[in-house]
């Protein structure tokens, strides 16, 4: 599934190639889980009033998440802290599959977003960001008058 922004695509072949490269990386990343994938994984949903971006950020405290919206870019920054109990005492790891540390991702949206209207929820490790499109920016149907 592709998500293109206006002005990218065929107008900008370099950007299109970069996007294809990222898409291939994503496909290979799914086949080979040992390869590093971008964190957090995000899904983008299109609705009538704008887009909804969901991200899987299990183990990140909502207070450690920072969402910024500027024009048509959405940036999600955050930090996943190691387990405080494990850090406080001398523990022996039997298995360590989770990763920790800071992360940041930027998503280009197909329209300008009103930062005042952005709504974010955090449920069981899934962050849902609702990014409505400003009323004035919505596409309008133009009636054709008879001459």
């Amino acid at each position: 599934m592709f998500y293109t922004t206006p002005g990218s695509g065929w107008l900008d072949p370099l950007r299109e190639m970069e996007r294809m490269r990222q898409e291939m990386d994503r496909l290979f990343g799914e086949l080979m889980p040992t390869l590093r994938r971008e964190f957090p994984p995000m899904n983008i949903w299109a609705g009538e009033n704008g887009v909804v971006v969901t991200a899987q950020v299990p183990g990140v405290r909502p207070d450690d998440l920072e969402i910024t919206v500027h024009e048509n870019t959405l940036t999600l920054k955050g930090r996943r802290e190691p387990d405080p109990q494990a850090a406080a005492q001398d523990v022996a790891y039997h298995r360590q599959e989770r990763s920790y540390g800071g992360f940041a991702r930027t998503v280009a949206l197909p329209f300008r977003v009103d930062p005042e209207k952005v709504n974010a929820r955090f449920d069981n490790g899934i962050l849902t960001m609702e990014l409505p499109r400003p009323e004035a920016d919505k596409p309008r149907r133009i009636q054709v008058r008879k001459a």
């Binding site: 599934m1 592709f2 998500y3 994503r26 994938r37 971008e38 994984p41 995000m42 899904n43 983008i44 949903w45 299109a46 609705g47 009538e48 887009v51 909804v52 969901t54 899987q56 849902t128 609702e130």
Partner: peptide
């Protein structure tokens, strides 16, 4: 999300 279609999926 209700009334939305998935346009880009990473998970």
């Amino acid at each position: 999300p209700p009334g939305c279609t998935l346009v880009h999926a990473e998970y």
